[in-house]
Simulated assay, not measured.
Amino acid sequence: MRGSLTGARDLLTGALGPLKGVRLSLGLGRHLIRLAPTTPMALAAGPALALAAVPSALSLHLQPVVAALLLRVVTTLCVLPVAFALDDPGARTTAVLPFPVTPRRLLRLVPVCVPLAAAWTVCALLLRAAVPSDDRAALPLAGLCLEAAALGSAAVLLAALGLRLTGGERGSALAAPGSVLLPLALLLGPARPWLFAVPHGEFWEASRRGWASALIALTVLAAVFLGERRASARC
């Protein structure tokens, strides 16, 4: 009889195991959403979507070069909230959590980067819709997406460096101004015609290779600096 009860209890525990995992996942998801910088995200995504929707709303026909320029402005807006994704004023109190710091910080990026990527995609499609159908092939969204991804990785890297400078609390102290000044510096610098090349222009293909290389390098550096230098884990 006792063996039967033990077996039944083991079966019940095994059946409830996946449910516990789901509950933990949902709890973690709610926690990550609460930590997301919703105010910067709204302040960035709102103007970006409005800017992208205006041409179609006013029945304007954009040239591909103009649409690319507007999409680059949208990119700057969408990248800025990433600078706040890793901020944690309570980092010193969570330093003892038994979970590696790098995965925690990577998870913090998910509820920020996914909605912003979706907003960027919607903006890109809205701007593409405002380009006459015969000219849409001259607006390469995939190539422009490389710029957005590389600048996003740069924002993550700056936020990771900012965490190291502020005891794990405010990555945005460095990343927020850096996410604004970096595109401006690139835009005003001598390499502007190459970095922000005209779609399908003279420097376009070489520029895409440069942005792809920058994306890989920045992603690797961000992953390295997201970790803590000391053994204590901070978020």
Rank of each mutant, 00 (worst) to 15 (best):
G3A: 15
S4A: 14
L5M: 15
G7F: 11
G7I: 07
A8R: 15
A8C: 06
A8V: 10
R9Y: 09
D10W: 07
G17E: 13
P18A: 05
S25E: 10
L28H: 04
G29E: 01
L32F: 04
I33M: 10
I33S: 10
T38C: 05
T38S: 09
T38D: 07
M41F: 08
M41V: 02
A42Q: 02
A42C: 08
L43E: 05
A45H: 00
A48K: 02
A48Q: 01
L58H: 15
A67D: 03
A68H: 06
L70A: 12
L71E: 00
V73T: 11
L80A: 13
P81F: 01
F84G: 03
F84M: 03
A85P: 06
T93G: 06
T94L: 10
A95Q: 11
L97M: 02
L97P: 00
T102E: 07
T102C: 11
T102A: 13
L106H: 00
L107T: 03
R108E: 04
L116H: 07
W120I: 02
T121W: 14
T121K: 10
T121Y: 04
T121S: 13
A124T: 09
L125N: 09
L125E: 12
A129Y: 07
A130F: 12
V131I: 03
V131Q: 03
V131N: 04
D135K: 10
R136A: 09
L139N: 13
L141Y: 01
C145G: 12
C145D: 14
A149N: 03
G152W: 00
S153E: 12
A154W: 11
V156D: 01
L161M: 08
R170V: 06
S172Q: 02
A173F: 09
A173N: 02
A176Q: 05
S179G: 03
L181P: 11
L182R: 10
L184A: 13
A185C: 15
L186K: 12
G189K: 03
P193K: 12
W194S: 14
W194I: 08
F196Q: 14
V198L: 12
P199H: 09
G201H: 01
W204P: 11
W204T: 07
W204I: 08
A206H: 10
A214V: 05
L215I: 02
L215V: 04
L221G: 03
V224C: 10
V224W: 13
F225I: 00
F225R: 14
E228M: 06
A231H: 13
A233Q: 11
R234G: 12
C235Y: 07
